Simulated assay, not measured.
Amino acid sequence: MFFASDNSGPVHPNIMQRVMDANNGYAMPYGKDEIMDEVREGIQRTFEAPNAAVYLVATGTAANSIALACYTQPWQTIFCAQYSHIEEDECNAPEFYAGGAKLTLIPTDDKMTPDALSAAIARRPTGNVHMAQAGPVSITQVTEFGSIYSLDELRALTSVAKSAGLPVHLDGARFANAAVALDCTAAEMTWKSGVDVVSFGGTKNGCMGVEAVVFFDEAKAWEFELRRKRGAHLFSKHRYLSAQMAGYLQDDLWRDMARSANAACARLAAGLKQNGAEMLHESQANMIFARFPRRVHQKLQAAGAKYYVLDGDVASGDGDALLAARLVCDWSMTDELINQFLSHF
């Protein structure tokens, strides 16, 4: 009953097999391996972007931070939602890689709105030497609370950014979960909606540890290569990153795994509702935020369930007091484990 994070799930056997297949003989290092050619062509085909520049790193933090640094001067600010991933979970890495640029947080309960973004940009007028200058806009898709920006919502945000002459970065750690939920193509959720660069996540969705950075603006390719090397994220035995991403792309495995994770989450959410849990946010992908009694938390923890309790002391207090929790499903989650979890309500 492991619902702590999709980072905690196993690697898909097909991806592991590609890594094993790559572990044979010799291959050129630093991204010059032949598998990377397959990956580049596969991502360009997936995103309907034959000229896209494609690079691999091992972590989402590296993908987001180095990509954003390519669009951000040290005297600029990156606009993002108050609860965006780059604010909540990156330990100031975007600011570090961008040479000290700051984040401007857009006030919101979850998703960023065009009006709020427009107002924030207006407060950073170009040419005022005393203020941080306006820099890129970063959008987290899926959001930190499990919500999804619709294509119309994405286009509305990128329209605001473009009208101000600002580039747009999409943090796609759970890109696959969002694309499946929206039933859209990778292109529709990125460059066709005004996105300039995307981190195409693999680690949370059945890979061992690989993320792709996809630039639809080829002019930034060389700068990313330099920043990746300078930032110590260019792997020498790069073929093991390439092999993971090749397996991820093959036969649209990335979509299949996201579909499984989303479906498992929907089953779990339905079961929680039936058992009286209060849903704090609408579950649109593979994350649930819910509140239920302390006594249930105690039973679940005693049974070995793993998930994040977001507030309160589980061990002591009123058994009927409601405590909030986050639960996440990955591609491997089974009906049996979901039923076992729900049986403790």
Rank of each mutant, 00 (worst) to 15 (best):
S150G: 09
T104V: 06
W75K: 10
V137D: 00
T140V: 09
I139K: 01
A120C: 05
Q82D: 09
Q141L: 14
L166Y: 06
P114Q: 05
A132C: 10
D152Y: 05
L151I: 15
P167G: 08
A120K: 03
S159G: 15
T143G: 09
C70R: 00
I139P: 01
A67D: 02
L105N: 09
T108N: 14
G172R: 00
F96M: 11
L105R: 15
W75D: 15
I78P: 00
H130C: 05
P125N: 02
H85A: 14
Y97V: 03
I148S: 12
D115R: 02
L68M: 15
E88C: 12
S138K: 06
A161G: 02
K102L: 12
Q133P: 11
C91V: 09
G172D: 11
E88A: 12
T126V: 13
A93F: 11
I78C: 00
I139M: 02
Q73K: 15
L117N: 08
T113K: 05
E88S: 09
G146Y: 06
G165I: 07
P114E: 04
E95C: 13
A120E: 14
N92Q: 13
N64G: 07
A122D: 12
N92M: 12
K162P: 01
S150F: 09
L166F: 08
P107K: 06
P167W: 07
L154S: 03
S118A: 15
Q141Y: 02
N92P: 01
W75A: 06
T158I: 09
S65K: 01
D152H: 10
